[in-house]
Nucleic acid binder design. Structure first.
Lengths: 228, 228
DNA sequence: TTAACTTTGTGAAATTCTGCACGAAGCCCT
DNA sequence: AGGGCTTCGTGCAGAATTTCACAAAGTTAA
């Protein structure tokens, strides 16, 4: 078995590659031809050794004493992330967010065209959102097959999210972007990324409170150094 | 120094607490009074020992042989995350997303009321979005002070995001929720959470491609077991 | 060509995170 | 009261991740 065991990139590194790619695209747009791990590290806000190790998972594409070529690295990251082709997206849930995603043209140019949107509400089915018409969720399987959809975005209400996920999986989808504030029950063969602003805000809240408590205790120390 | 070194919760655990809280709120809403680490683990899709360890950072609030009391644990998580008070949010950037956040009433009930929205475009300043009026970004500092804002959400264009961050930090904000696809340059004393759908899609793309390659190589093996 | 300098690629140490395994502690039933 | 059962809390080992540190490999200049 020569290479059935494909080069595995650690999860943590996979999550950083899109960030590097973003930065490299910016460098390219500003006519920067080469970069060093130090420079990329500064722009990405991480350690330089981490950058080098992350990039080394792609192969040895740097030149010692010189650095990396922007365009070449962009291509390598895109290849590794599977961005040399398009991945069609279907949106499940034609509410505010779902329609916004369908209308928003920002994903198609980045390789993720939204090719369909479905809902289970008869009042919404048939309505137009941008260039798309809302389909019946019962047509999901056919839609996924006909349009070669690989990614499903769940923008339903929380209560409908699990059945939306079930329908997507039933239709053969194995990559889900979930916007509902719920932990989906799914087989381990399916990938899920959760986007939950509530969670993000609560994490910020923790560290904010942390800072406040530390400031308070310092002030306390100043104004009242002697224990009561 | 008795406890100036506040009980530190590992970052990984902090990121899970909001998820547990969400689930416990659901349990509470369905009149479940108690839960075991096994049950919560199943609902959260994690290991039971991890749940127990995470909860143990809050203190010893379980009862052996019984489990945890839902309402009590909800309170403890909320306390630890700093959710016993409200954290006011200001939105920087009155575009589609910014206005949607300002109008969306879903954050106030969860403790994060959006109390202001600013922009630098004279055409947008003064317009109403929901209950709020768009202010001039130059009033940010005053707005932050007067309305006791602690969290800033950046919903500007990518090119304006860094100066938005600078303005927020200048105004005294130390917690930022960034929606622009860019790595902000900020001092280490400031917390940032990035919400970038492009990044999420690209991560999904990687694992999707991975699956496809594995399937392909299996098929290849079947149909062509002998190497050429 | 050689010496000085730069920057990659990567072992290895350090740190963080996860998961097992089990003692401790409480409940229930007889 | 005591035995059996359940479930927490946590020490510890292993996995994953991050960081250090330096040899290797290239450039530049004299």
């Amino acid at each position: 078995m020569t290479q059935s065991q494909r080069r595995r990139i650690p999860d943590a590194a996979v999550a950083r590659l899109p960030v590097y790619l973003q930065i490299l695209n910016n460098l390219h747009a500003t006519n920067v031809a080469r970069f060093s791990s130090d420079e990329l590290a500064a722009l990405a806000g991480v350690n330089a050794a981490k950058v080098r190790k992350d990039l080394s998972y792609l192969g040895s594409y740097g030149t010692r004493g010189v650095g990396y070529v922007v365009t070449y690295l962009i291509h390598q990251i895109r290849r590794e992330l599977g961005l040399l082709r398009e991945w069609n997206v279907v949106v499940v849930g034609a509410g505010n967010l779902g329609c916004a995603l369908a209308k928003f043209g920002g994903f198609a140019p980045r390789g993720f065209p939204v090719v369909g949107i479905v809902d289970n509400d008869p009042k919404k089915i048939g309505q137009s959102t941008g260039a798309l018409k809302v389909s019946d969720v019962r047509n999901l399987q056919k839609l996924v097959r006909d349009l070669e959809v690989t990614i499903g975005a769940i923008t339903t209400s929380t209560s409908a999210a699990q059945s939306a996920a079930d329908a997507l999986i039933e239709a053969g989808i194995a990559s889900i972007l979930n916007f509902a504030p719920i932990v989906l029950a799914i087989p381990s063969s399916v990938s899920v990324r959760n986007v939950d602003l509530g969670v993000e805000l609560q994490i910020l809240s923790y560290y904010e409170q942390m800072r406040i408590e530390q400031t308070d205790s310092k002030n306390q120390q100043k104004s009242n150094a002697v224990p009561v």
